[in-house]
């Protein structure tokens, strides 16, 4: 499969008929690299469709709006307006970044979804947590411990190269010190139609569609 398909593509944007901006091309919703129903039974087609076509699309639209306002504020040197826009950029920009990574780090079983990690990343996971099974338990505990909306991430410390599991509230993205390798969405919209309040079942099922090839690429980068 091609990871380039999910890169944010300013070029595609003009061809979709959006008006171009003098400042920068707008963000667009990336295509999913698989069908909406391809992750069943772990994640239903209905969830995937709403999650991608509605939720992710809204983050993209709201990010573009916020960036436009931000550009205006920068041009007019209105620093207060710039600062006031930070929460919107963080939330909608984070939502766009997080979901783009999420779609990529999932895959249908037919495309090796659920196949355990291999190579250097597998080694590093074993060194850090003892085994893949133990690692999954720790991630699932972190997901279950999120109080509200948020994400759990396997990250690499950019300096020490050590692996770590971190949780982030709402749509706060992984930036700075850590590089995101694998993200799991623990917002209720990610599972509620299928699992309702039984979120532990979602956390357990999602390992069947984790795309470790994507995480391995990110680990190497």
């Amino acid at each position: 499969m091609s990871f380039a398909r999910l890169a944010l593509r300013p070029a595609a944007f003009a061809s979709r008929g959006f008006a171009t901006s003098a400042v920068a091309a707008k963000h667009v919703l990336p295509d999913l690299p698989y069908d909406y129903a391809a992750l069943e039974p772990a994640i239903s087609g209905k969830i995937m469709e709403l999650h991608h076509a509605k939720h992710h699309q809204t983050y993209v639209n709201s990010l573009n709006e916020a960036e436009e306002k931000y550009a205006t504020a920068v041009n007019s040197k209105d620093v207060k307006a710039q600062i006031a826009l930070h929460p919107a950029l963080r939330f909608h920009g984070g939502g766009h970044i997080n979901h783009s990574l999420f779609w990529e780090n999932l895959a249908p079983k037919s495309a090796s979804g659920g196949a355990p990690p291999t190579g250097a990343l597998a080694e590093s996971i074993n060194q850090t947590w003892g085994s893949y099974e133990e690692f999954k338990k720790v991630v699932n505990a972190s997901l279950a411990g999120i109080q509200g909306s948020g994400w759990s991430w396997l990250v690499k410390d950019k300096e020490t190269k050590q692996l770590q599991i971190v949780t982030m509230p709402n749509q706060d993205p992984i930036v700075g010190k850590y590089a995101p390798l694998l993200g799991i969405d623990a917002w209720e919209h990610a599972y509620y139609l299928q699992y309702q309040n039984r979120k532990a079942e979602y956390f357990s099922a999602i390992w069947d569609v984790i795309n470790w090839k994507a995480a391995e690429q990110r680990f190497k980068a």
Partner: peptide, 9 residues
Amino acid sequence: EHAYYIQYY
């Protein structure tokens, strides 16, 4: 989201 999602998405 659990307050409305099943009905309103």
